[in-house]
């Protein structure tokens, strides 16, 4: 099958690649680029383990072709820490036990980052509704919801810190 050229920006880096038109985005990320933090859980569009951000919006990368990403900005779990420091939401998951086996965690984090960008102060109900496409077999969700609430708080604190004038 002939290859198609695509241009994307992945975790801030411009990337040009050639892909088979039928290749799924998740396989492009994992196999071609080695970004294996994006997981395949069900492969039937149900679990959200494969969630990535396309232009800031959370989508299932197992239900999207790599060619559909052409011209777009993609964020995977590898792209959310800064200078070797975990993202505040990642720290919150660590501290509040938002993960056990960790398989669902990249998807949980990215879906929640999308929510927190739209709504810095989500209610418990909004957090739960937003996660309805992300399944977790381990935690029972309670600790994930706690982590997201705590993460929202940490993100706000960090922002305020950065806005404080340097003396």
């Amino acid at each position: 099958m002939s290859l198609v050229k695509i241009k994307t920006r992945i975790n801030g880096k411009a990337i040009e690649s050639e892909v088979e038109p039928r290749k799924l985005l998740v396989h492009f990320l994992r196999e071609d680029l080695g970004l294996t933090g994006t997981h395949v859980g069900c492969d039937t569009s149900n679990c959200g383990a494969c969630t990535v951000l396309i232009n800031g919006r959370a989508v299932k990368s197992c239900t999207m072709l790599a060619v559909q990403a052409d011209g777009n900005e993609i964020t995977t779990i590898e792209g959310i820490s800064r200078n070797g420091e975990l993202h505040p939401l990642q720290k919150a998951f660590l501290e509040k036990h938002g993960l056990q086996c960790g398989y669902c965690t990249p998807g949980m984090l990215l879906t929640s980052l999308w929510l927190l960008k739209k709504n810095r102060n989500p209610s418990e109900e909004e957090i739960r509704k937003n996660l309805s496409g992300n399944l977790c077999r381990c935690t029972g969700y309670q600790s994930i919801v706690e982590s997201i609430k705590y993460g929202a708080q940490l993100m706000k604190e960090k922002e305020e810190e950065q806005e404080m004038p340097v003396r």
């Binding site: 569009s45 959370a58 989508v59 299932k60 879906t111 509704k129 937003n130 309805s132 496409g133 992300n134």
Partner: peptide, 8 residues
């Protein structure tokens, strides 16, 4: 569906 499917 869910918010992820609705985004696409």
């Amino acid at each position: 569906a869910d918010p992820l499917v609705r985004n696409m």
